[in-house]
Computed example of a mutant assay.
Amino acid sequence: MRLKAGIFVAALTRRLFAEGNMAAIERRGSEEAGAIFIRIRHRDGSESLAAP
């Protein structure tokens, strides 16, 4: 059984908030099997993208 995308994103955002970081969900797709892309903005102004 695979973990649903909605549950994974909710857990990830809660973990980030608990550590004192910030997170925002830009767009929602399918709760069951949506692809998850994570954009990371670094303090120096650069960005990284984590994708499947």
Rank of each mutant, 00 (worst) to 15 (best):
E26S: 13
G45T: 07
L16G: 01
G20F: 00
E19R: 06
F37T: 15
A51L: 08
I25S: 00
I36D: 00
M22G: 01
L49M: 04
A51S: 11
E32H: 12
I40N: 00
L12R: 07
F17N: 06
I7T: 12
G29L: 00
R39C: 15
A50F: 03
G45A: 06
G45K: 04
F37D: 14
P52Q: 03
E47T: 15
R14N: 03
K4M: 07
A24T: 07
V9H: 09
R43H: 13
G29D: 01
A24P: 02
G20D: 01
F17A: 06
A50P: 09
G34F: 03
M22R: 10
R27K: 13
L16C: 05
E32I: 14
A33I: 12
R2W: 09
G34W: 03
S46P: 03
H42A: 14
G34A: 11
M1P: 03
I38K: 13
F37P: 12
G20P: 01
E26I: 09
R43K: 12
N21W: 03
L12K: 00
R14Y: 04
E31S: 10
R43N: 04
R28T: 11
S48D: 00
M1T: 05
I40E: 01
A23Y: 02
A51H: 08
R41T: 15
A11R: 02
R28G: 07
R41S: 15
R41W: 07
I7H: 06
R27N: 12
A35T: 11
F8E: 02
A33K: 11
E32Q: 05
G29C: 00
G34Q: 03
A33H: 14
A5M: 07
N21F: 10
R2D: 10
S48N: 09
A24E: 00
A5R: 04
R15W: 07
S46H: 10
L12C: 10
L16D: 09
R41L: 15
F8M: 08
R14I: 06
R2T: 14
R43F: 13
A51T: 07
R28S: 11
N21M: 12
T13M: 07
G20T: 00
A10C: 14
I40L: 12
A5Q: 09
R28N: 11
R15L: 06
R41A: 13
A10D: 15
A11M: 09
V9Y: 02
A24W: 03
G6F: 08
I40D: 02
E31C: 09
A33Y: 14
R43D: 08
A10K: 15
R41V: 15
A10L: 15
A50L: 15
I36T: 02
L49T: 10
S46V: 11
S30Q: 05
L12M: 02
G34M: 00
A50C: 14
R39M: 15
R39E: 14
E19S: 09
V9R: 02
E19L: 13
R2N: 11
L12I: 07
M22T: 12
A11N: 06
A35D: 10
E47Q: 10
V9T: 11
L3V: 10
S48V: 10
V9A: 05
M1N: 03
I25P: 06
G6P: 06
E19Y: 04
D44I: 08
L16Q: 01
G6D: 15
G45F: 06
